[in-house]
Design a protein around this nucleic acid. Structure first.
Lengths: 189, 189
DNA sequence: CGTTCTTGTCCAAGATCCTAAACACCATGA
DNA sequence: TCATGGTGTTTAGGATCTTGGACAAGAACG
């Protein structure tokens, strides 16, 4: 006896699905980041259950997004064409800042990021799951980039381009912060 | 074995208690309006449980307040002294609008409302639970006010003052909207 | 002093959420 | 064709939320 919960003033399921798909995450990947099960994400998105606030909070921690942002999201906006610096959604941390362009855009096919690595900061070396390609250009500072077996330090005006499935790692070996504009497809964030 | 849930980034219990006490409601009164039990309100406010989103939504319907407003509330603001029209919190409905001054102020001792009755609108005649007194002045339109057995129509510049426990009823018998500035103590909203 | 009302808290039992595991489907590739 | 790895969905059962009622403490009143 499959049941669907009464329509509430706020459609939590649609909201969560919108947030997740916009960021290009699978239910399992979001579940892993949030420390819950993929089944729960599925049930919530179908409005088969109304999650406890603490569960929803855990799920949103995997995005990351606050409850206030989640409930304040306006789903019915026309696709936005221009984004001020304050419109970019921060996905990283203070050490490695990743600011996403057009985060809310449904069905987004491209991920563009404004990345900022603090002095000494680095990404974990890891194999990304998707099959897309990544490109970027340094606009300030210097960054050491390792792709497969090769390592090189890039400065302002220099760029990179590689397939995402090749293990790669960014490391800021300089004294000042390094900023990069990057793009990849399909979207992983 | 009494347990207290892990501290979350957002203290739902404190938030709800703050909202409720600020409005001068008891747990039972809020529960009645929301269609839940007083026990649930108690447990939520103590963070003994993390309510489901749908329960929290039901509870907030009794205020009324949206989930977005609830999670956006800033609890740590210094007492606000000035309130623009947009700062007043709407407590009524389209027919009978009740806009509360200083809704968020903790320990508020006074309730001041900007009331607006659409043409033909009326309050239910009911005995209010508290023992305070109410006063108000019409600033626009005309309103028929019944207090105990007496009825009178008041216009701009005219005022009223009575004990809250006397049954009373407001009714706009005119063609235009009627606006009133009212105050009562202790706070019932 | 009791009586009666209010308040918030606490406690089984029932309802709902959440997990772990399985399922069905599709795409890729040997 | 079969295996592999990805996707979202479903289900049984344990964990948690929610209810209805009891409880204790305080205030108002006679």
């Amino acid at each position: 006896m499959s049941k669907i919960l009464n329509t509430m003033s706020i459609d939590v399921g649609a909201r969560l699905r919108s947030v997740r798909t916009t960021l290009g995450l699978s239910q399992r990947e979001l579940a892993r980041r949030a420390g819950v099960t993929n089944g729960l994400i599925s049930l919530i998105e179908q409005n088969r259950v109304s999650p406890s606030v603490s569960s929803l909070n855990k799920v949103l921690d995997g995005v990351p997004m606050s409850l206030a942002e989640f409930f304040t999201l306006d789903l019915s906006t026309a696709p936005q064409a221009f984004f001020g610096a304050e419109d970019l959604v921060e996905l990283g941390n203070p050490e490695v800042s990743l600011r996403l362009v057009a985060a809310q855009r449904p069905g987004r096919q491209l991920t563009m990021l404004h990345e900022r690595y603090a002095a000494g900061a680095a990404t974990r070396e890891e194999m990304l799951a998707h099959r897309g390609e990544e490109a970027g250009m340094v606009i300030r500072g210097r960054i050491e980039l390792t792709v497969g077996g090769a390592t090189r330090v890039l400065g302002p005006g220099e760029a990179y381009y590689f397939a995402s499935q090749v293990p790669h790692r960014f490391r800021n070996v300089g004294r000042e912060a390094c900023e990069i504009i990057s793009a990849c497809t399909p979207p992983t964030f």
